[in-house]
Design a protein around this nucleic acid. Structure first.
Lengths: 341, 341
DNA sequence: GGTTTATGAGTAAACGTTTCCGCATATTAC
DNA sequence: GTAATATGCGGAAACGTTTACTCATAAACC
């Protein structure tokens, strides 16, 4: 913060009070057209800009939101999904005159479960980005500060934006059913994750809607590794009434499954159809190109920005929980099921 | 910024003046051990935390640095290289009690070549991350604010940190020469880029140091696309005295070159040796695994943090330009040159 | 013409810190 | 015992805003 001139200097040169200068700058009060012009001229001439510190103190707000990652910044920065979301978020916030303060949870909260930069009033609110342990969200939920869960756990009565994994699940089942599939299985990780659960619920709902077989075995979950998950899948493929289509919970998993199947001599999509989720870059580069679900990531960020801006201006407005529509992207990893073997 | 209690409240409860409370909190002035203990007890009891706005106003600093991207945040966030650098940067700054404010150049500077959040004093300094047009750096260079060029153009008399591409160039040549290569060619983009130039200079210096052929043709540069670059390379490979080793300016380029050569029936490393730069993830996953240069990215960020922190505390200290040592990573894309064909 | 109302602009308080002084009291020096 | 010094603490100013309030003057009303 270099030396800068204050509103006093402008007032002096314009031969008026600081109140009038402030009024002009903020389009408040009544100022004659002439005086307004004079003041603005001087403002640009001397290159005056309001001092944030003074303004923040008086206004009790900083126009900065904290963007919090778990467990730390480094873990999340590299994720291209969040990179795109952040892009949309930053864009909209900047447009509204707001800024983002970066922080990793573990560093920011060394002495208290609540980040220090919030407690000292460095930010007007906090955006929780991605997966956070329930326990931590609970702590935040007690705050009266604007808070946003972005692509996180939307079970809480807090503002949140997620992609509509439920709708995606339904759409995927419909799409596969249209192609003629009747025995569809979903693959997912076992650990607790709101977005994964959402997709599973949508998948199950889709099966029921179409009167397809839906039971415990419809969803295969496994904790340890992709390979274990494949082993479980392989058993089913080799068993009686094998599934003809596999809905992987995300693209990465789908890629691994397809690779494993191919190594086992199974053709995709001729023998088994496979779908993913996220539309990562690899989805269109692989062989076969992957049918998947696209999330409009910048839009996810933009919607989040909208929500927290709204919350900041109207703290009492009802909680907004948003599910962002997703698009089914048809590529070549889905085909009609093989004739019964 | 929710309602919070001020230092007055603490002073009242401790039966002393706000000056004393402030002194205790900042370990300044002389306060009796008893009073200090009393005050600290009350501070924790009521959960008092200093108000940043008040502090910023009085101290004329915010303990926030702006992290600026060009042209915009979205373009850079996804880059895994910068993601890791940012991780190191954030880690060290947080440790020092500082924070990072995110901004894309084009959004932050809509009305002025200098970001608004700097002019209003929202930040104590600015970090320029990655490639910036010369013209823009020139504008920044006039500022008296702490400024850091991180993995950017280090030609300016400004604090900067880059990876030591020069040393890398030398090391690569030495390594290839040790394997027996005498005709080595470097491939690079033609656009102006400080880091690329550094690598080229190092490469040329390496050739001269070892008395190898060094002339105009030692470095092939091309603007348009990787494919054009390959065409130029292919011509040389098919011509008289073909190079036996190719130093690509980065991993991505190396990957493409290797792929193209393989399609043309050239074996790597049996026919041609190839090296990269950056040690991206793909470098170890590809076939053959790529011999490349590793930059300690978190360390790059950490070093940058160190520099700007130093600058913030001692504005007059001499300019610090840092080149971070790099490591040559030997893998399987380099072998002895083929016997003369 | 006198009273109300609209208009333009200024005064001063408040936001929450940090820090320069000054003032007691206690300690030391001679 | 007096003078010098050290110690502990408080008063008050300053940082740069925004805004509620006051106060003239000018315009409008009847």
């Amino acid at each position: 913060m270099p030396e800068r001139l204050s509103i006093f200097e402008v007032a002096k040169q314009a031969n008026c009070s600081i109140a009038t200068v402030s009024n002009v700058l903020n389009n408040k009060g009544r100022v004659s057209a002439q005086k307004r012009k004079d003041i603005l001229k001087i403002v640009t001439a001397v290159g005056y800009r309001v001092n944030s510190a003074g303004r923040n103190l008086r206004m009790k707000r900083t126009e900065i939101f904290g963007l919090l990652f778990y467990p730390s910044c480094a873990e999340i920065f590299g994720n291209p999904f969040y990179a795109e979301v952040m892009g949309g978020l930053e864009r909209r916030l900047t447009q509204a005159g707001y800024h983002l303060l970066l922080a990793g949870y573990e560093a920011a909260t060394a002495n208290s479960p609540i980040p220090d930069f919030l407690r000292t009033g460095k930010v007007d609110g906090i955006i929780l980005m991605g997966r956070f342990p329930t326990e931590i969200i609970r702590n935040f939920s007690k705050l009266k500060t604007p808070l946003l869960l972005l692509d996180s756990n939307a079970e809480w009565p807090l503002d949140s934006v997620v992609s509509d994994g439920f709708s995606a699940g339904v759409q995927l089942v419909r799409h596969l059913a249209e192609k003629g599939h009747k025995r569809i299985v979903m693959l997912a990780y076992v650990w607790e994750d709101y977005n994964i659960d959402l997709r599973i619920q949508g998948f199950r709902a889709g099966l029921r809607e179409l009167g397809l077989e839906e039971n415990e075995g419809s969803v295969i979950r496994h904790a340890i590794s992709h390979l274990d998950l494949y082993k479980a899948l392989k058993e089913r493929l080799d068993g009686p009434n094998p599934p003809t289509a596999v809905v992987a919970v995300n693209d990465t998993l789908a890629v691994t499954m397809i690779r494993c199947m191919q190594e086992d001599g199974l053709r995709v999509p001729e023998d088994v159809s496979v779908t993913g989720y996220d539309d990562e870059k690899i989805a269109q580069d692989m062989t076969p190109p992957l049918t998947t679900v696209r999330v409009n990531k910048p839009e996810l960020g933009r919607a989040g920005a909208e929500l927290i801006l709204e919350r900041a201006s109207m703290p009492k407005s009802p909680v907004a929980k948003m599910r962002l529509p997703v698009d089914l992207i048809e590529r070549q990893s889905v085909a009609a099921p093989p004739a019964d073997r």
